[in-house]
């Protein structure tokens, strides 16, 4: 019997085999969204726990990786929602390209803070598209929404970020 079929029927050895096979991929995907290795590790375990609990509903003909990625993305978004910072940003900031490393570090932190203030769903979509350069197809698959919805999220994220970056005096 196929590994996925055995997993769907509740075979624990098959689950372990799938865990070993997809652990790195799931961890890497979550890390790209939450950008925190410790949180990514915990969320990876949580993802596989949810996979384990939902194994009876899994269709062995469907790709396991895509299913795992979608569960992982939802968990990562929940994590971002909890972590979302409420800090106020200063009005002005030195240019991030300035030669002073302290200024560069400060600029980086300001960019990150501004980004973390986006709603979690927009953060996830913008991280994957802009920083990790994933395609809209891949993002829509992971988020479980249409490409149109991804475009809309990107549009909203860009509008908020552009306003925020302008307010902070940041230029590309």
């Amino acid at each position: 019997m196929d590994l996925l079929e055995r997993f769907a029927k509740g075979d624990d050895a098959a689950f372990e085999a799938l865990f070993r096979q997809f652990e790195r991929e799931v961890y890497g995907w979550i890390l790209r969204i939450v950008r925190d290795p410790a949180a990514a590790e915990d969320l990876t375990v949580e993802t596989f726990w949810r996979i384990y609990k939902a194994r009876a509903r899994f269709d062995p003909q469907a790709p396991f990786g895509a299913w795992a990625r979608r569960i992982a993305t939802n968990l990562a978004i929940d994590h971002l929602r909890c972590r979302r910072s409420e800090q106020e940003l200063p009005e002005q900031l030195g240019a991030p390209g300035a030669p002073n490393p302290a200024l560069q570090r400060e600029a980086r932190e300001q960019i990150q803070r501004a980004f973390r203030r986006l709603p979690a769903k927009l953060q996830a979509a913008a991280t994957l598209a802009f920083i990790e350069e994933k395609s809209y197809d891949e993002i829509s698959d992971a988020l479980g929404v249409s490409i149109g919805a991804v475009r809309l999220r990107m549009f909203r994220a860009v509008r908020i970020l552009r306003k925020e970056f302008n307010r902070m005096g940041l230029k590309p």
Binding site: G97, R108, I111, I131, F165
Partner: peptide, 10 residues
């Protein structure tokens, strides 16, 4: 423009 700034931050 937004992408370039984000890449500096992340």
């Amino acid at each position: 423009d937004v992408r370039a700034i984000l890449k500096k931050g992340f």
